[in-house]
Simulated assay, not measured.
Amino acid sequence: MKLLDIYFSLKSDLDLVERRLLDEVHTSQYNLKKASSHLLKAGGKRIRPVFVLLAGKFGRYDVTKMAQVAAALELIHMASLVHDDVIDDASTRRGTPTVKAEWGDRMAMYTGDFIFARALVLLSEFSDVRVHQLLSKAIVSMCEGEIEQIRDFYNKDQNLRTYLRRIKRKTALLLSISCTMGAMVADCSPQVVRLLERYGYYAGMAFQIIDDILDLTSTPKKLGKPVGSDLRQGNLTLPVLYALHNSPDGLRLRSLIHRDMSQAELAEAVRIVKASGGIEYARQMADRYMEKCLSALRELPMIDARGKLEGIAHFINERDH
């Protein structure tokens, strides 16, 4: 099933999510409203809302509740992006200027805080304590992950375990929660909730590894940012870590990675990583996570939503942007 077909089948529900998102970033503070709407208007894959909606199909589906959860989780994701762009000193995202670039660091941080707070207000309308416990623990873990990422910028001695823990907190956790919360709010059975949680987690791990590959292999037009941005910012991803430990040019690569990398140094570093087999190693790792993702999916009831989740999984693993 093609991704566009999946999104088209959910169009009316996703339109409701979009309206909720627009409502939630509304404020009488003009600059805050403009900054909050900026990233929203830039679009995105909306994969978290899609996961919420499809997970809800396995239980008692109430589109109003589903849209509310979906909007809240997308707001949390958006808030994290605004904060990330400040930390990473990023000037573009999805091919458009970041909130940081348009309004500065201080406004960007307050905008991220505002969007995050709106998500919490939206979810406060749910009485199920499990929803709030799940989200609270996840937010703590996400914040810890961000601090670890900052700590490990340009750290050429970090290991695979550190990397995997980081991408779990950075990406996989929120995708997993999107599936879990969608299932919880739809009153799915505990077994279905657990399987969807596993699906989202493994899909999220594969998603981030593919993202890290594309940062080195795609084009600026497809990425919406310069190739090698993660490496230049000191975020050492799986292909780079593999090259540092396995390439015959590993020592040269270590010398190239520093806070003031020139464009020529970045280009040479990317060439070393590509020649090391690091891209292929990362791809194999993503494939293993994707197989676990599909394995969890196969245990779920055979309904239309399961086929759509499988289609999204294949898109994640095969995408080029």
Rank of each mutant, 00 (worst) to 15 (best):
N246A: 10
L223D: 02
I257Q: 10
Y281W: 11
L244C: 12
K221F: 12
V273F: 08
D260I: 07
H258L: 05
E268S: 05
A264G: 10
S218C: 11
A282W: 05
G277P: 10
G228S: 13
E265C: 07
I272E: 03
D215N: 13
L266W: 06
L241K: 00
L236F: 04
N246Q: 13
P220V: 02
N246V: 03
G228A: 12
S262M: 11
T219H: 02
Y202G: 00
S276M: 02
I213L: 10
F207S: 00
G234K: 01
S218Y: 11
R283V: 02
M261D: 08
V240L: 04
I210N: 00
Y202R: 06
H245C: 08
Y201E: 14
D215W: 06
A286M: 03
D249P: 07
A275P: 05
A243R: 02
R271P: 03
Y242R: 02
Y242L: 05
A206P: 11
I209V: 14
I213V: 14
V227D: 05
P220M: 03
M205A: 02
R252K: 15
A243C: 10
I279D: 05
G278Q: 06
G200N: 03
M205R: 04
L223C: 12
Y201V: 11
A269L: 11
N235Y: 05
I210Y: 01
G278M: 04
V270E: 12
G250P: 08
I210Q: 07
R288K: 09
L244S: 10
H245W: 09
Q263F: 05
G277N: 03
P226V: 08
E291V: 14
A243L: 02
Q263N: 15
A267F: 09
A267K: 13
V227H: 09
Q233L: 13
L231G: 03
D260G: 10
R288M: 08
D212F: 06
I272P: 03
D260N: 14
N235H: 07
N246C: 13
D260E: 15
M285K: 14
A282N: 10
V240A: 12
Y281D: 06
R252G: 10
G250W: 06
K222V: 14
R252F: 11
A267Q: 14
K221E: 15
G250S: 12
V240P: 01
L223M: 10
